[in-house]
């Protein structure tokens, strides 16, 4: 490399850094550097989707703000997505807009909920969306940038920024970082998108908002009911209840899923079992200041904390190297849509 080339390189890199600083100065970033987006970059992204650039895919009616395919593409590019990731980001917004909480103030909420974006189908492999080891963690561009693109739309297109219209008391770890593939290859059950009505092999995205994730480490029992008791105990924690109402879903580890399936449990069986057993007595709730039934109620009366079996989403993801799972806590009480949204590829 000649000295001249080195100097040119250094100048270019200085400009790259200055461009990143420019985005910070304009308030366009979530705290991490963003990729500068020019008109030609935008056209590359728009060429990756069959959807019209002026189609509105995300909106906040209470603020009178919306985001078109074009604006989502700008924010996806800024987030570090590749153009071919855009169809998944758009499908993620389709899935999010199907959730009542999303148009019900969730982005502004003190709860600070985190979108969980679940991808099914061959598009996972094509785009390098991780569904195996470290699925909830960092290290995979598609997972990280698709989730981040959602967050940049909230920040930039909607103008919902922390300490302004966004009022999260503490926020949720994983906010705008949770995009996972389902580990369809090692799951004993049908993929989530198929459970929700799409044909096998569909490229699809489902989404819900989370209050948190809580781990379940259970690798020392071969009794499926003991495993389920462990999960139900986590689901029935009073701290996660608002009044007597709570919520739960599972990012079920492969070993737990296979263990339950081998014992004859379908996904629906697991959902029903958890609904039946995620129970606390009124006395338990009262002890935590969460009983709303009044002084005449029987203190030993059992109370179901989860809303309904089908409102317990189950996704299989992670590596088959230890028997652990993550309980997730859907945000709000208006219910999960139970929908999967096709990824529209060019």
């Amino acid at each position: 490399m000649s000295a001249g080339t080195t100097t040119d390189d250094a100048v270019l890199l200085d400009h790259a850094r200055a461009a990143a600083e420019h985005a910070y100065a304009r308030g366009w970033t979530d705290g991490l550097p963003v990729v500068p987006v020019t008109a030609s970059v935008l056209e590359e992204f728009l060429a990756a989707t069959p959807r019209a650039r002026d189609e509105v895919v995300a909106r906040m009616p209470n603020l009178g703000r919306e985001a078109t395919v074009e604006l989502v593409a700008v924010n996806a590019a800024m987030a570090g997505c590749r153009p071919e990731h855009l169809p998944v980001v758009l499908a993620a917004w389709d899935a999010l807009m199907a959730q009542r909480v999303v148009t019900g103030g969730a982005w502004q909420s003190t709860s600070g909920p985190a979108p969980l974006i679940v991808v099914n189908g061959p598009v996972r492999t094509a785009l390098g969306i991780n569904s195996a080891g470290g699925v909830l963690g960092p290290g995979f561009r598609a997972n990280a940038t698709i989730a981040r693109a959602v967050g940049l739309v909230v920040r930039n297109a909607f103008g919902v920024r922390p300490h302004e219209l966004e009022q999260a008391t503490q926020g949720v770890p994983g906010r705008f970082t949770l995009c996972i593939g389902e580990n369809e290859e090692e799951s004993p059950w049908e993929p989530l998108a198929v459970e929700l009505g799409l044909p096998p092999g569909s490229d699809a995205v489902s989404a819900l908002l989370l209050r948190t994730c809580e781990f379940i480490d259970n690798r020392h029992t071969d009794d499926p009911e003991r495993l389920l008791w462990d999960i139900a105990d986590t689901a029935a924690r009073t701290g996660a209840a608002i009044g007597h109402r709570s919520s739960a879903g599972l990012v079920l580890g492969v070993e737990h899923a296979q263990h339950l399936a081998a014992a004859g449990f379908t996904k629906a069986d697991v959902q029903q079992w958890l609904y039946d057993h995620a129970v606390r007595t009124r006395a338990d709730l009262d002890r935590a200041g969460k009983d709303e039934s009044g002084p005449d109620a029987d203190p030993d009366e059992p109370v179901h904390l989860l809303p309904a079996p089908e409102q317990i989403p189950i996704v299989v993801a992670g590596a088959r190297n230890a028997a652990m799972s993550m309980l997730v806590r859907p945000f709000g009480f208006t219910g999960w849509s139970r929908t999967a949204h096709p990824v529209q590829l060019r």
């Binding site: 304009r26 308030g27 366009w28 020019t38 935008l42 700008v74 924010n75 930039n156 103008g159």
Partner: peptide, 13 residues
């Protein structure tokens, strides 16, 4: 400088 960087807000600000 950087006028060609597209505004990701859509201009509401």
């Amino acid at each position: 400088m950087f006028e060609s960087m597209i505004d990701p807000t859509g201009g509401w600000a």
